[in-house]
Simulated assay, not measured.
Amino acid sequence: MSERPKIVVDENMPAVERLWGDSAEIDRWPGRSLRREHLEGADALLVRSVTRVDRDLLDNTSVRFVGTATIGTDHLDIEWLEQQGVQWASAPGCNADAVVDYVLSALWQLAREDGWDPLAQTVGVVGAGNVGGRLVARLKALGMETRVCDPPRAQRENDDSFVDIDRLLSEVDVVCLHTPLTVEGAWPTRHLLDARRLARLKPGAVVINAGRGPVIDNGALLDIARQRPDLSLVMDVWEHEPAVDPALAQHCRIATPHIAGYSLDGKIRGSWMLYQAYCRWLGVDACRSLASVLPPPAVAGLELAAGFDPADAMRLVYDPFRDDRQLRKTLNRTDPEQRAAFDLLRRHYPVRREFSSLLLQGRFDPGMMAQLSGLGFRVSGTEAPE
């Protein structure tokens, strides 16, 4: 490795220059169009989920470290990287809270529009890893009834509290998908929700996919959406993205361009976790803290009056309908233009913070205080009588 290493970076990764400072040469490229020729002389590569990292990309390059600022690693050919002696790192949990914020925001906004109580819903979580596990924890903190399907965990932990996917789909009001995308092994997740399983959804069910697009057969989902207008679909990921089926999007209550985890907190945390892994690989001290590169939020606190709706505080931090409107503007374009617009929405995504960045103050009854804390806000105030 040269005295001042060269690091090729996805153009959408924040804070890389601040984290590495002058210790490395940073060369940025669009992640989806990254090619081998862009890696000439590179010692390290930092990507997000849109870049497939395998032999086709890295063979005969000087890259010896690969980091992905994402929870998932299905876009990395880990077996090949390890065979070649290329060190790799991911950022598990970096944007998990952002995805949970997205799911809860969508659920509370739909509840307000349709006039039902979100706390009274039974929620099924498919995949209880970094994201799904945190979602389950928040749902339980809110006192909500849950069903959890995660066959690998159920087997590993010998835990009979997990349920199978068919039972979950037939019992819950809300289905949240947070599995990795796998096509082999004992529990493949590609098209986990196919036509047969989609038919098991309860009347009026809400389906939220903020995991991997191909976990749902999008063609089958469109068919059942046409047959069952009672269903509410929230789709952040798509089977053939950056292509989005306009017909399917038309049947979605909320349709967004794979940005559920796109909080500034999560993105910077992902970069910082790779910075730490890179320093460990080199055997040097990581001298920059997360706090040193995370800016203060534009709105740090809010004083709430009696009778407020928690959905208002949630929407102040994150409004899923804003992202929905932006995506829908792109769906009447030609296929190449729509694909490019999808990536532009991600590339130029506005600053978004997490619920935990906002301090809510006021006089709260015990139930409301518990709800706000369960949602993920910081809460400070006196208890009002119920």
Rank of each mutant, 00 (worst) to 15 (best):
E3P: 01
R4Y: 01
N12T: 15
W20G: 00
G21L: 12
R28W: 11
R28E: 11
W29A: 12
G31H: 11
G41Y: 03
A44N: 02
R52S: 10
L57S: 08
N60P: 00
N60D: 15
G67K: 00
G72H: 06
T73Y: 09
H75M: 04
L76Q: 05
I78H: 02
W80N: 03
L81H: 07
N95I: 07
S105W: 03
L110F: 10
A120W: 02
V125E: 04
G127A: 01
G127E: 03
A128E: 09
V131K: 02
A141W: 04
A141H: 11
L142C: 13
R147N: 01
V148H: 00
L177H: 01
H178C: 09
L181S: 06
E184A: 14
P188Q: 03
P188S: 04
L192F: 05
G204N: 10
N209T: 00
A210Q: 04
I224P: 11
R228D: 08
D230I: 05
S232V: 06
V244I: 10
A247K: 13
L248Y: 02
I254M: 14
P257M: 05
M273L: 15
C279R: 14
R280L: 08
W281H: 15
D285Y: 02
C287R: 15
L290E: 09
L294S: 07
P295D: 08
A300N: 07
L304N: 09
F308R: 12
D324M: 06
Q326N: 13
Q326K: 09
Q326M: 13
N332F: 01
D335S: 12
H348W: 13
R352V: 13
R353T: 11
F364R: 05
P366H: 06
Q371L: 10
A384G: 08
A384R: 13
A384E: 11
